[in-house]
């Protein structure tokens, strides 16, 4: 049983960065902007979070640094795509390449250094309940934060005026503009929110998931997060469900590997990527589902007419 508990706990830590990055990107895409730079922003967040935690000794300062780094990179993206109206796909790809390259450069001296770990919480009494205690009350702070952010996004997007404005901007920027809403400020805010979340997700990797810095340690998680937004058909709780499903697939792969069933480890490592493809196919093939929720102006440039 304790083995099962360990697996469940690892699944939660593996799912959290996916959820953080995906929920941020969901908000970005709901405002009509497609930021393919998630992977790059995660990498920058991971390296800056690791570095700041190492320098200060505090994982919480590391988290703040990771968020700031992701936000800074996304601000650059917002300036290029929203203000200068550059191609979002191309700029997003460039952002990923920039983030990965820059993170390797910044992190060169961090390779092999032991990191600062974000500890799991321990609430005396509650965390000691067998099985349920560690799962419900013994996680690190960011596991709860990710779920809280999901709840907040779900509430704000669908139950508040702010959410209505964001969705209006994403579904028809011309109408939103005609109604007097600031398309450009809304998109800036959403993109920076997404970047902050992606940076946080990267920081989670280098501070909680595996407290160390390895080049390319994001290993495609930013891209999986992008796929998760489609998988969750732009709905926050479905994205959260998807993130936990993916975390489960990743960790079960490892778990099977340790059992040594003679399955090549490379096949098990490729499972998350194969599952991503299958998930995309299943969801994208369902036209009714995607048509209802895909932001109509996703990826389209907005130039206000005078």
């Amino acid at each position: 049983m304790s083995e099962l508990l360990a697996i469940v706990l690892t699944i939660i830590t593996a799912s959290t960065p996916l959820l953080l990055a995906a929920i941020g990107e969901l908000v970005v895409e709901r405002s009509g902007v497609l930021n393919l730079g998630v992977e790059g922003m995660m990498a920058i967040g991971a390296v800056c979070g690791f570095g700041a935690a190492l320098a200060s000794g505090s994982p919480y300062l590391g988290i703040l640094a990771a968020m700031a780094a992701g936000a800074a990179l996304s601000l650059l993206f917002a300036f290029l795509t929203v203000t200068l109206v550059s191609n979002q796909v191309a700029t997003g790809l460039a952002l990923t390449l920039l983030g990965l390259g820059l993170s390797g450069l910044i992190g060169e001296s961090f390779v092999g250094q032991p990191g600062v770990k974000l500890e799991r919480l321990h609430i005396p009494g509650l965390s000691d309940i067998p099985y349920l205690g560690p799962i419900l009350f013994g996680q690190d702070l960011l596991v709860y934060a990710a779920l809280a952010i999901t709840a907040a996004v779900a509430y704000l997007l669908f139950r508040s005026k702010l959410g209505l404005v964001i969705r209006a901007v994403g579904d028809s920027h011309q109408s939103a503009h005609a109604l007097g809403y600031g398309v450009i400020p809304v998109r800036y805010a959403c993109v920076v929110f997404g970047g902050t979340c992606a940076g946080l997700a990267g920081g989670y990797l280098s501070l909680a998931y595996t407290p160390q810095w390895i080049e390319n340690m994001t290993a495609g998680r930013g891209w999986i997060a992008l796929a998760l937004v489609v998988f969750g058909s732009w709905l926050p709780w479905r994205v959260a469900l998807g993130a936990y499903l993916f975390g489960t697939v990743m960790i079960l792969g490892f778990a099977v590997q340790t059992k040594g069933l003679g399955i090549p480890p490379q096949f098990l490592s490729s499972l998350p990527y194969l599952v991503t493809i299958i998930a995309l196919v299943v969801i994208s093939g369902n036209r009714a589902l995607t048509r209802a929720n895909t932001p109509a102006c996703l990826g389209q440039p907005f130039v206000p007419d005078r």
């Binding site: 393919l36 495609g220 891209w223 796929a227 490729s270 194969l274 995309l280 994208s284 036209r287 995607t290």
Partner: peptide, 30 residues
Amino acid sequence: LKNRFGASEILTSLMLVYVSQLLLDWLVRG
């Protein structure tokens, strides 16, 4: 996958990069 199911080629083609590299890794070690 793009034509039949409308799956984004951006994501599927990128995911296949990892799959191909793992396939290569398996071949040369196995």
